[in-house]
Design a protein around this nucleic acid. Structure first.
Length: 1021
RNA sequence: GCUGAAGUGGUGGAAUUGGUAGACACGUUGGACUUAAAAUCCAAUGGGCAUUAUGCCCGUGCGGGUUCAAGUCCCGCCUUCAGUACCA
């Protein structure tokens, strides 16, 4: 009797695959290549839950399928192992994040004594076909050496708009030396000065370095951050609520800090354009498009007027604004600056000073997020200053308002209240004039923003023109006056690249005379220094400020003690000994994840990110699977870096991934027990909450309705009340006339591991879960069961609804887990996990096993019998459907298809090798262990992974007749079997002649008969 | 507010270009096997009304529309989830 011992089978084949390197990809092969990649995980200490492997299973099915199709498949896995949780754990426990990270990956025991299974062990149990010989970890110095190297490449590059690509900084220096920067069209800082070749050549080295920094693709700049003085750290918007830190509730201020930035804006247009050539989900493309936020319009320069009421105002200021509606310029009746705008302090009149300052201060206290969420409140202050309208010369009052954001455009708008609702609301609120410049439009209620139907009026030289013509004329006129030009604006901002953290890549940067210098590649990696604590320093420096050995010796080319740093650090001075301080910040999380896909191609190469041959052979990722939450972070930054490395001829491709699929989240089914909170209702003593009882009372879910015991269950109410009374009377309470006990119910999370598939609670387990439950009393249903209620929520430790894949593998097997995850529903959709349903998939695998074990006593039996027509039909329709499903990533429907196939073949008593052998190959991407085992029993010595995918033969599915649905007025009434080659006329005749048709018509004559051959017949009338 | 996705039995979900709504599972009920349980197998299972069978009506979030025919297409709503940036 051969039973399906999945645990043994799975362990056996996992071992076999590992020992034989079954899934090692070759960098040279005659086969076509295919690269399947998962977004690599952050190895958290909590381990995997069943939601994590969903995408990995899908990609694994696809990778295995592609191998069967004859591709040389690269399917690697690694870890995005730098990150905040490890650092915070290090702060709490003092353990080095490298140690805890290793334990999280490889398993072990943490300092608190918790046993950690380890990501790798958990993943291995699921039977993935990863090529582990290519594993990368971003926190590994051998890996982050290349992250540092890419950073240096960015530093050594500038973006040439003329050739629309990044070029070496050396090339820029030669241009400067020969002709200055007059003809250079580059993406650079706004405040870059103009200079001639003579001037350039005359600059001191430091001056030249400063100018070059304005061109480099990564550069130092003052950036505003959320600074929390109490915590000594910078906080993300997420970490701030109502202006105070989420942790500890400390005040947060906006502070400028010198930080590294990435000039991603140089790539805005290409990032936008190239979306067209990648096969990514449309919603994801849309969010990148919106994030980049291209808008066409004009920049307009307004001159600030000498103030009529005060001579104290500075003169000669200009305000640059960006507008998408230059055609409405005659409707501009005021201007609004962001409160943070540099000019605010300079142009505000003395009379308005106090009010403006108070407003600016109030705004600074609000987080950016708060400010944006609040759409209703209109606020602002008049600065007292006026600007001159470029065409009419009229004075335009300058206001500040927090609806204008410093970070977008120029941080200033020309307000056209008749054409923009926000400007309109602002004008209405403050009683500012709202001139109407639209032909035949009523603006007494709201602004008119419909560009397409605009005809301009009251606007001098553009009267009667539409949006397009008026815009062109205004831009021409502005250019003629030197007060503006057509401009394309992007919402995308340069990306801040510095983090004040320990657990990230150190910058390969030291500072000589305050200017950043790169460490040469041959001396990389620059490894993280030891620190005694992982917190920022008391003086507010980043954690690396605690390192005592963190200076760069340019003579020895190594890290040396801080004590050796040149006292002055000025090059060439007597005290300059060639030792300089190193950068204290580290790189952000996305640094290590932007180009990791290329490192897998040649992961051990000490000379290069990956060899030219490997890069050329593998190209880019053919299929990338991951969550949509990375749409505007990882996936945008990665595209940016890949384009950059393409420009600099490091990579042969300019996109990381050709095709991308988002997997949806698997939600948890939380369990709730209902706690009955007793209340004493006493005519003498009033209402009293009995919250001092030494036990808690829980009632089965089905006894409760609308927060109280169901009416028909008043015996249950009595049962609960008597528990309370017994204790009360024992403890000296005297029952008085009219006393009654009522209950309020409170739902609390119970750990799902104490709940079975019928929603019944393991009461003993639950009582042992937490001390406060140890004396719990249960009000059960009549049959003695205690039920919990269920609710679908995000799967998370804090909701006690986490289901561990290891346990599923132990109980049902990895093949069952894999198939069930695929069976749950469409890959890209969010769906709840319910362990209850898993038995269906599990018994399918048992049936599959039985299909191959039809011999005496359940012995393995496959015959060489010629398959029947039905056998072949079942097989080939399965091949067709499964192949289509995998190509369409419709994995859930192919699992159904397998179930149907096995049910049919069992019914047909099929044991023919000609059918059962190809069937295994079809199933093996989903359930590789059982397929491998049965394949082996069939006498194969090679892994099933090497078998070719069966060929679909349409001839087995040819039908000669069709069971036509015969419908009347669109409603199907009966079916009729007719030959498929029957003509329309004959079909109609056959249907009309049928007695059921006559019965349906009941003597009426049909108005019309619709016959769709091969499909349907519909009789109307 | 905006953008995107989604609403189908008790549950997860099927339904290729409009053409038999509810495939495949879970659950439930009944039955077989068993001393019993588990496992396994068989049958029924959208709601309602009928019944000797044959049947009939209603049904894919709501309200309209197009069509011989609508879960699918169009218009207008509602709800849920996700993302988010008052974008000049």
């Amino acid at each position: 009797m051969s039973k399906y011992h999945f645990n043994e089978i799975e362990a056996k084949w996992q071992k076999y695959w590992a020992e034989n390197g079954t899934f090692h990809a070759q960098n040279d092969s005659d086969k076509p290549k295919y690269y399947v990649l998962d977004m690599f995980p952050y190895p958290s200490g909590a381990g995997l839950h069943v939601g994590h492997p969903l995408g990995y299973i899908a990609s694994d099915v696809y990778a295995r399928f592609k191998r069967h199709q004859g591709y040389n498949v690269l399917h690697p896995m690694g870890y995005d192992s730098f990150g905040l949780p490890a650092e915070q754990y290090a702060i709490q426990t003092g353990q080095h994040p490298a140690d805890t990270t290793r334990v999280n990956i490889e398993g072990g025991v943490d300092k608190k004594g918790n046993k950690i299974a380890g990501y790798r062990n958990q993943l291995d149990k699921i039977g993935f076909s990863f090529d582990w010989s290519r594993e990368v970890r971003t926190s590994n110095p051998d890996y982050y050496k290349w992250t540092q190297w890419i950073f240096i490449q960015l530093f050594e590059s500038w973006y040439d708009n003329a050739s629309d690509k990044a070029r070496s900084i050396e090339a820029l220096i030669s241009i400067f030396a020969e002709e200055g920067n007059e003809h250079v069209d580059a993406s650079c800082d706004d405040d870059t000065p103009s200079f001639t070749a003579e001037e350039w050549n005359g600059y001191a080295d430091a001056e030249q370095q400063k100018i070059l920094l304005k061109y480099r693709l990564t550069y130092l700049a003052e950036t505003e951050v959320n600074w929390c003085p109490e915590l000594g750290t910078v906080l993300a918007n997420d970490e701030i609520t109502n202006g105070v830190s989420e942790r500890g509730g400390h005040p947060v201020i906006r502070k400028k800090m010198m930080q590294w930035s990435m000039r991603i804006t140089a790539y805005a247009q290409r990032l936008l354009d190239d979306l067209a050539k990648i096969d990514w989900p449309q919603p994801l493309k849309d969010s990148q498009t919106n994030w980049i936020g291209r808008s066409e319009g004009a920049s307009v320069t307004f001159k600030v007027m000498p103030n009529v009421t005060s001579s104290a105002v500075e003169k000669g200021h200009t305000i640059e604004v960006f507008t998408t509606r230059p055609d409405t310029i005659f409707g501009a009746s005021f201007m609004t600056l962001a409160p943070e705008h540099d000019l605010v302090a300079k142009i505000t009149t003395p009379e308005q000073k106090a009010e403006v300052e108070a407003y600016v201060e109030a705004t600074a206290k609000r987080s950016e997020r708060d400010r944006m969420a609040d759409v209703k409140t209109i606020s602002g202050v008049f600065t007292g200053a006026y600007a001159e309208h470029p065409f009419t010369g009229n004075p335009v009052p300058i206001w500040i308002g927090d609806y204008v954001l410093a970070g977008y455009g120029t941080g200033a708008v020309m307000a056209v209240p008749c054409g923009d609702q926000r400007d309109y609301d602002f004008a209405k609120h403050f009683g500012i004039e709202i001139p109407n410049i639209f032909e035949g439009i009523d603006i007494s209620e709201e602004a008119f923003a419909d560009k397409e139907n605009t005809i301009i009026a009251n606007s001098d030289f553009i009267n009667g023109l539409n949006y397009k013509d008026a815009t062109r004329k205004v831009i021409d006129a502005l250019e003629a006056k030197g007060q503006g030009k057509g401009k394309i604006n992007y919402r995308l901002r340069d990306a801040v690249f510095s983090r004040q953290r320990y657990w990230g890549e150190p910058f390969p940067v030291y500072y000589k005379n305050g200017l950043p210098q790169m460490i040469d590649l041959e001396h990389l990696p620059l490894e993280l220094p030891a620190v005694e604590k992982y917190l920022p320093t008391e003086t507010g420096e980043a954690p690396l400020g605690r390192a005592s050995v963190w200076a760069w010796d340019t003579n020895l080319n190594k890290v040396v003690s801080n004590d050796l740093v040149s006292p002055s650090g000025v090059e060439g001075s007597e005290s300059d000994n060639g030792v300089y301080p190193l950068e204290l910040n580290t790189m952000p999380g996305w640094a290590g994840s932007s180009c990791y896909m290329f490192r897998y191609m040649d992961p051990k190469n000490p000379e290069m990110l990956a060899s030219e041959d490997a890069l050329k052979y593998w190209g880019n990722v053919d299929l990338y699977i991951g969550g949509s939450e990375h749409a505007t972070s990882h996936l945008l930054y990665s595209r940016f870096w890949v384009k950059f490395l393409y420009d600099r001829a490091v990579l042969p491709v300019d996109e990381p991934a050709k095709k991308l699929i988002n997997q949806g989240m698997i939600l948890g089914e939380s369990a709730f027990v209902h706690r009955a909170l007793p209340i004493l209702l006493s005519p003498q003593k009033g209402i009293k909450e009995l919250n001092f009882l030494p036990f808690q009372i829980f009632a089965s879910e089905d006894l409760i309705l609308n927060g109280t015991f169901r009416e028909e269950r008043n015996t249950k109410h009595a049962e609960a009340a008597s528990l309370v009374w017994d204790w009360m009377l024992e403890n000296g309470y005297e029952h008085a006339e009219g006393d009654a006990i009522e209950f309020n119910f409170q739902a609390i999370h119970a750990d799902v591991s104490y709940v079975n598939t019928s929603n019944e609670l393991d009461r003993e387990g639950f009582m042992g879960w937490r001390p406060e439950f140890q004396n719990a009393k249960f009000i059960n249903t009549d049959d003695g069961a205690f039920k919990v209620s269920r609710e679908v929520e995000k799967m998370s430790k804090s909701k006690y609804n986490v289901v561990n894949p290891d346990e599923i593998c132990f109980q049902y097997g990895a093949d069952t887990l894999r198939m069930y995850e695929m069976f749950l529903g469409p890959l890209d959709q969010a769906k709840p996990w319910s362990t209850a349903g898993i038995t269906g998939v599990h018994s399918f695998l048992k049936k599959l096993w039985k299909l191959y074990h039809g011999g005496a006593e359940g012995a393995f039996q496959v015959s060489d019998a010629t398959p029947t027509k039905d056998n072949l039909k079942t097989l080939h329709k399965t091949i067709k459907k499964v192949e289509e499903d995998i190509e369409n990533f419709s994995f859930n429907t192919s699992v159904s298809t397998f179930m149907i196939a096995v049910n049919e073949l069992t019914q047909q008593n099929c044991n023919s090798r000609e059918i059962l052998e190809p069937l295994l190959v079809l199933i093996s991407p989903y359930a590789p262990h059982i397929a491998e085992e049965l394949w082996n029993k069939l006498g194969h010595t090679q892994s099933i992974a090497t078998a070719a995918f069966p060929k679909y033969d349409a001839s087995h599915l040819v039908e000669s007749s069709k069971e036509y649905p015969i419908s009347f007025n669109g409603k199907m009434r009966f079916k009729l079997e007719l030959p498929l080659d029957m003509s329309k006329e004959d079909i109609e005749a056959a249907v009309m002649a049928h007695e059921r048709t006559q019965q349906q018509l009941d003597g009426r004559t049909p108005k019309k008969v619709i016959v769709v051959p091969g499909k349907i017949v519909n009789i109307v009338g």
